[in-house]
Computed example of a mutant assay.
Amino acid sequence: MMVATREVTYDVDGLSMIGYLAQPNGPGPWPAVLIGHDGVGLEEYQRQRADDLAAHGDLALAMEYHGGEVFFDRPDAMLSRIMPLLADVERLQSIGRAAFDVLLAQPGVDPDRIAALGYGAGGKIVLELARAGVPFKAIAVVHSAFPDDKVEEWSNVAGTFLLCTGSEDPVCTPEQILTFGRALQEAGIDWRVEIYGGAEHAFWAQPRKPDGSLAEGTAHSMTTVPGVSYDPKATIHAWRAVLDLFGETF
């Protein structure tokens, strides 16, 4: 299916955000997916995921929350930006809500068929939106940071949750995923887990040079946290799981 793409600029958190919109051809109505990037920034991988979703018949908006910056070679600057965000739930919800409003405002969006996909800190943003009452029909998160796992915080949340990580991820461990999943289960939420053997944190992210161009191999020349490496097999498996969830939902 042919898709149309464009940048979408909107203001939140004192910054001008530059999101990426991909939509199928035709009049709609379409299911819609909100995508949250990880702490490094909105890069080509998330844009490609938006393109792929649009090719499957979903309108997709990859949100942005660094004001156009991508921290490929500045780990300290990235952590200085991301850690205060992760600690401030209201700020995360505000950032996510602004992007969600942009998504809903697109012509052809079916407001009754909305899903979310988040990586790392972007996973926590979409989870916080769900906790705040955004009616996602499905949520997929990959090596996410997790919100509060108190059961009562999730008792009014619906939809199906997909939680993915690598078995060797030191930041989003399988134990953390199962702890969060048990809270969802006690709240009556449908949830599933995929754990990829041998995969580390941000396993989908191909190594890049300081200028942002792709590098060879699986090891990153500079990382923001320990335990990060590229795993192409886990990348494929996780994306298939996401497509399966959204296909099943819509």
Rank of each mutant, 00 (worst) to 15 (best):
M2V: 09
A4I: 11
R6A: 10
D11S: 10
D11N: 09
L15T: 01
S16I: 07
I18Q: 11
Y20R: 11
L21W: 03
Q23W: 04
P29K: 14
V33N: 04
L34P: 03
G36K: 02
E43N: 11
Q46T: 04
R47F: 03
D52I: 14
A54R: 13
A54I: 02
A54V: 00
A55W: 07
D58C: 15
A60K: 02
A60P: 01
A60T: 00
A62E: 07
M63F: 13
E64Q: 09
G67R: 10
G67C: 03
G68N: 06
D73T: 02
R74A: 12
D76H: 02
A77S: 13
L79T: 06
S80Y: 08
S80M: 08
I82M: 12
L86H: 08
V89R: 15
E90Y: 04
L92F: 04
S94H: 06
I95A: 14
G96C: 08
D101S: 12
L103Q: 05
L103C: 05
L104R: 11
P107Y: 08
G108R: 04
D112S: 10
R113Q: 14
I114G: 13
A115T: 15
A116S: 13
L117Q: 14
G122D: 15
A130C: 15
R131I: 09
F136Q: 13
F136R: 13
K137C: 06
I139E: 08
A140V: 00
V141H: 10
H143I: 05
P147D: 00
P147H: 00
D148C: 13
D148L: 10
D149L: 04
V151L: 06
E152N: 14
E153V: 09
E153S: 13
W154N: 10
F161G: 08
F161Q: 11
L162S: 03
C164M: 08
C164F: 03
C164N: 09
T165G: 10
S167I: 05
S167W: 05
E168Q: 15
E168A: 12
D169W: 06
P170M: 06
P170S: 08
C172F: 09
P174F: 08
I177A: 06
L178P: 00
L178T: 08
A183T: 00
L184R: 01
E186D: 09
A187C: 01
R192S: 08
R192F: 07
V193T: 12
Y196N: 06
Y196W: 10
Y196I: 11
A202R: 11
A205T: 07
P207H: 03
P210T: 01
S213R: 12
S213V: 04
T218D: 12
H220G: 03
T224P: 01
G227R: 10
Y230R: 01
P232R: 15
K233C: 07
T235E: 14
T235I: 03
H237P: 01
W239F: 00
A241E: 11
L243C: 14
F246G: 02
E248W: 12
